[in-house]
Design a protein around this nucleic acid. Structure first.
Lengths: 163, 163
DNA sequence: ATAAAAGGTGTAGAAATTATACATCTTACG
DNA sequence: CGTAAGATGTATAATTTCTACACCTTTTAT
């Protein structure tokens, strides 16, 4: 059991945006800072936009920013949204649950209830935290003074031109 | 985020064994009842044996049984054992955590702590239940009177001979 | 108006994980 | 000894996840 990189990246992107609320941040910047695939990040960020977590601006000087203050973005909400498949066992997959015939244990299967309860508990913990809580002074220091290679070993002008 | 089929099957097998405590159950029987691959189940069951959850007996009239009463087998323990990889994000993978340099968020990353707490909460819920709690009278009725095709649509003698 | 910068979208393929099948060995019982 | 049942290892198939590439759309600066 683990969260997908999808969720991992989404959370990190949000944290980064939460630190840089004074300006728009480009996808490329986020990808470079964390050393992850820009192409992959594009899709994750797009989804975050659809989900209303961030606002995007196209065109020159465009970029990303949080749609709401970090204090109003719940970690649980992000995970719930990013992690599409929260059915823990085959019993809980929508198709099967809908059809009513999951495993032979069927609807009297307590397993489903217990796992569901555990999952709810998991989410409840996450719901107690907001993005703001993820941003410590230490991190702000680490990722905050970035402009010219504080965060990584690259300067803003090092970004490859286009092709 | 979801548990592997591995865990799913392991739990179901244990439930089945918990219902049939009066005799040894063969792997083939479990596989047929749930309609899952016998070959796959073999390995899962082997691991359950290594983990001390069940006892196996080889040879003619061999089979499986719970190593302890169902009331002493915690669901959390089973999941913890079966689900090897409980690191929720790359931050938490042992290799990386050990090396101390996970993501650039590094050790001041609160994310890790929060996800860890959520996971602990998840497991705590599971720890409140034992295998015994998973076995309801309904299920016992459903899987209990099996001998000749109550559970599936097969009789004990329908099991394919060998090759 | 045009060019450049940045996000949006779709597809294809690589890599990793998970599940299944097959073959063979070991053990226990009769 | 022969058979039934678990133990083990390997190989293949299926699925999921990740990456790369190509091209489109929108916005802004000149």
């Amino acid at each position: 059991m683990k969260l997908t990189l999808h969720t991992d990246y989404a959370l990190r992107t949000l944290i980064y945006l939460g630190i840089h609320t004074d300006r728009l941040v480009s996808i490329r910047e986020v990808a470079q800072v964390y050393g992850i695939s820009e192409n992959h990040l594009v899709k994750i960020i797009h989804r975050l936009g659809l989900g209303g977590f961030i606002e995007t601006a196209r065109g020159r000087n465009g970029g990303l920013k949080l749609a709401r203050p970090a204090s109003e973005i719940g970690i649980g909400d992000v995970v719930r949204y990013t992690e599409e498949d929260l059915g823990l066992v085959t019993c809980m997959q929508p198709e099967q649950a809908a059809a009513g015939h999951c495993c032979i244990l069927s609807d009297v299967c307590r397993l489903r209830g217990v796992l569901g309860e555990a999952l709810a508990s998991f989410m409840t913990v996450l719901d107690h935290y907001t993005l703001e809580g993820m941003i410590t002074p230490d991190e702000r220091r680490r990722l905050g003074g970035r402009e010219a290679g504080q965060a990584g070993n690259l300067s803003a002008s090092d970004l490859k031109p286009a092709g």
